[in-house]
């Protein structure tokens, strides 16, 4: 496995990244991600679907890029959010653009529904994993089409399912419990936003690969839209943050 410095050197020279492999190898599959994004969190609410992800692109443990947009709109109805390898996500965006162009060329005014895009992405990711050349992402596909909210996800091996709320990566462990406790059907926009913020705040406190610069996006009957990044409020004066060892021997945890 290549080290950071090797990778940097190889990236500059265009040589094979992997140690122990000759440059004559025909091609190298992605066996690990390079620049990565962390959790994507999304939920259905009264008017549609809302999604959030931070803007950090991590390079290993280095906070390398601080303004990466990991939620995009596609077609007339859909949001796609991604964690994992950022270059693989850019390739996914190319595919989405191709779909858009095809629709535009037919010019019948129809674009793919969120559900179709979700299914298509799952097929593509499964196809790539079957070639042992995966796209290293969890994708969250959300949208609002024909009066109905859609939320689905697929991972890098093509495991896909629909859901009312979802969190990927670290979010699966830390945001999902919050969502399970507080999500309910037909939440108002402000309730949904507050719940997402609470998830993102918790992840910012505890997931090392985050920054407090977060894109919120939504898909409603007005179509999909991605907001400019914002900060969520934080509170660092909790006793356990200020004095992690106070009154216990828990090693700074709760």
């Amino acid at each position: 496995m290549a080290t950071v410095s090797q990778t940097l050197a190889c990236a500059a020279s265009g040589a094979d990244v992997s140690a122990g492999r000759s440059a004559a190898d025909p091609h190298k599959h992605t066996t690990s991600p390079i620049v990565t994004g962390t959790s994507v969190v999304a939920l259905k609410y009264k008017d549609g679907v809302m999604m959030a992800a931070d803007t950090l692109g991590s390079y290993g443990s280095l906070s390398r890029f601080t303004d990466l947009r990991r939620i995009v709109t596609t077609g007339g109805y859909t949001l796609v959010g991604a964690d994992g390898d950022y270059s693989d996500f850019q390739y996914v965006q190319d595919i989405l653009k191709e779909l858009e162009v095809e629709d535009a060329c037919v010019a019948d005014g129809i674009t793919h529904s969120p559900k179709e895009i979700w299914c298509c992405m799952a097929r593509i990711l499964y196809h790539r994993r079957s070639k042992m050349n995966p796209l290293w992402n969890n994708l969250v596909i959300a949208g609002f089409h024909e009066g109905e909210a859609f939320l689905g996800t697929t991972d890098k091996i093509g495991t896909s399912y629909e859901c009312d709320f979802v969190a990927t990566g670290m979010g699966l462990h830390m945001a999902m419990p919050i969502l399970r406790r507080h999500w309910k059907p037909n939440m108002s926009e402000s309730e949904a936003r507050e719940l997402l913020e609470s998830c993102m705040r918790t992840l910012f406190y505890r997931d090392c690969r985050t920054i407090n610069k977060i894109t919120f996006a939504s898909a409603t009957k007005k179509g999909p839209s991605v907001d400019e990044p914002v900060e969520v409020s934080t509170e660092w004066s909790y006793q356990s943050f200020v004095d992690p060892k106070a009154g216990s021997d828990t090693g700074g945890s709760w």
């Binding site: 496995m1 290549a2 080290t3 950071v4 410095s5 990778t7 066996t31 690990s32 991600p33 390079i34 990565t36 390079y59 290993g60 443990s61 990566g169 670290m170």
Partner: peptide
């Protein structure tokens, strides 16, 4: 030196 991959928990 730690590899990049080892930092990804999932």
């Amino acid at each position: 030196m730690a590899s990049i991959a080892s930092s990804e928990g999932d």
